Amino acid sequence: MTDVMHNFELFQPATLADAQAILGDHEDAWIIAGGMDSLDWFKHRVKQPSVLVDVANIPDLHGIREEDDGGLWIGATTTLTEVNESEEVQSRFPALAQAALRVASPQIRNKGTIGGNVSQDTRCTYYRDGFPCYRAGGNTCYANTPTAMNREHALFGVSRCVAVTPSDTAIALTALEAAFIVERGGNRREVAAADFFIGPDIDITRMTMLERGDILVGIRIPGKWAGSRQYFEKVADRNTWDFALANIAMAATMEGSAISDISIVCGAVQCIPRRLTDVESLARGETPGEELETLVKRVAARGAEPLNFNHFKVPLMENLAVRAIRSLA
């Protein structure tokens, strides 16, 4: 039955402690806030949890505030529109503001949260349509067969599954070296972006390190890249609604005309945000120009293993890296 949800029990806790208690009492509880990803799963009856925990109205999970080091703390239930329109985000981390602006449509950004955006599941059509693939507990990757339609899928990091990360804000947050604050049973821990997003070689059933009972409380962006030169670009079939075919985020500091430090990350080419460490090594200490752009283009997609229908992603990825570097000239 399409677009008809299953029956479930809904809890709307007012505090983080209440939410933790409910999660402790129900083994298959599903956390929801904006619901932009979750409701699709429910309508198609692919996921059918018996208990939903709506954390959208918990004050501790919402808002944007300045940190002592000049960075920002962003609550997990802060909407994408609020992130994009925040003067603090725009002035310190414009790459994140642009990434939030490019998510889906205005209606979805008004409801969808940054915590949900970074935690959403992959958009692989085979997986989302209920095929018994590796990620769903089966023994086949239907997107990696001779006749598969895999235009949107991975170039790197394939381990049975060829799905890619769908989140635009995850790419910007990884470039900004953000940390994710996760709470379980009243205990909080801080997880670096490099460890928050996980590939199929670690756990093929998840795209983040979040497990049952974990609540993403907020995201801390350190002041290291505040006010730096930043860049974000997303290439998709349509400017509204569509997920990225490839996107890129960069933060860089300059010393005179030379690049003193840089962080650059590409999305939609691997299951996790892909940090372009070879490009970073090339760029540090160099002056942006045609010579550097030529070298960057050579290494940006090095090691890519295209599938049947996504060879175009290789030059796309190369050119996005070049455009990011060119923005510093």
Rank of each mutant, 00 (worst) to 15 (best):
V164F: 06
M1A: 04
G137A: 09
T79S: 09
T81K: 14
F243C: 09
R92Y: 01
F309H: 10
R220A: 02
V89H: 12
E152H: 14
N7Q: 10
N319M: 03
A258I: 05
T122N: 13
E66K: 15
L276D: 05
S257G: 04
C133G: 10
I108W: 02
K224L: 00
S260K: 14
P94V: 05
E9I: 07
A329E: 11
A33Y: 02
E211P: 00
R135Y: 00
L292M: 05
A301E: 05
R326Q: 14
V55A: 04
A104D: 07
T122I: 06
L96R: 09
E291F: 01
L80R: 13
R206Y: 01
R212L: 08
D201N: 08
V217I: 15
E67V: 11
V314S: 11
A321G: 07
A321Q: 07
F93L: 02
Q20L: 09
A33S: 08
C133E: 05
A56E: 01
I181R: 15
A17Y: 09
L16M: 13
A244V: 05
V296D: 00
A300I: 11
I259L: 07
P315A: 02
H6P: 07
R238E: 05
T253F: 01
A154C: 13
F232V: 12
D60A: 11
G267F: 02
Q20E: 14
G267D: 11
F93Q: 01
M149V: 11
D195H: 07
R302H: 12
Y126M: 11
G157Q: 13
A193P: 02
L320F: 05
F180G: 01
G130H: 13
L210K: 08
V269S: 09
K313W: 01
K297W: 02
Q20R: 13
A283M: 09
L61T: 11
E211V: 15
R275M: 00
L295M: 12
A321M: 14
E286H: 05
M5G: 06
L216Y: 05
G112H: 09
Q230S: 06
L80E: 09
E183K: 09
T240E: 08
R184C: 04
Q48V: 08
I74F: 01
S263R: 13
I325G: 08
I74M: 08
S119C: 11
K234Q: 11
T205Y: 00
R123S: 07
I58P: 00
M254E: 00
R102T: 14
L282I: 04
L61R: 07
A76F: 07
T169F: 00
R274C: 02
R323K: 15
I219R: 06
Y127Q: 11
A33W: 03
G138M: 10
G185Y: 09
L328A: 07
A251D: 02
G71T: 10
D201Y: 06
E88P: 03
M36W: 03
R220W: 04
V46N: 09
A17V: 13
L10Q: 08
M209Y: 00
N144F: 04
R109S: 08
R102G: 01
H62D: 14
D54R: 15
G63V: 08
I264E: 01
T81C: 08
A17W: 07
G71I: 10
R151E: 09
Y142L: 10
R326F: 00
W241T: 12
D69V: 03
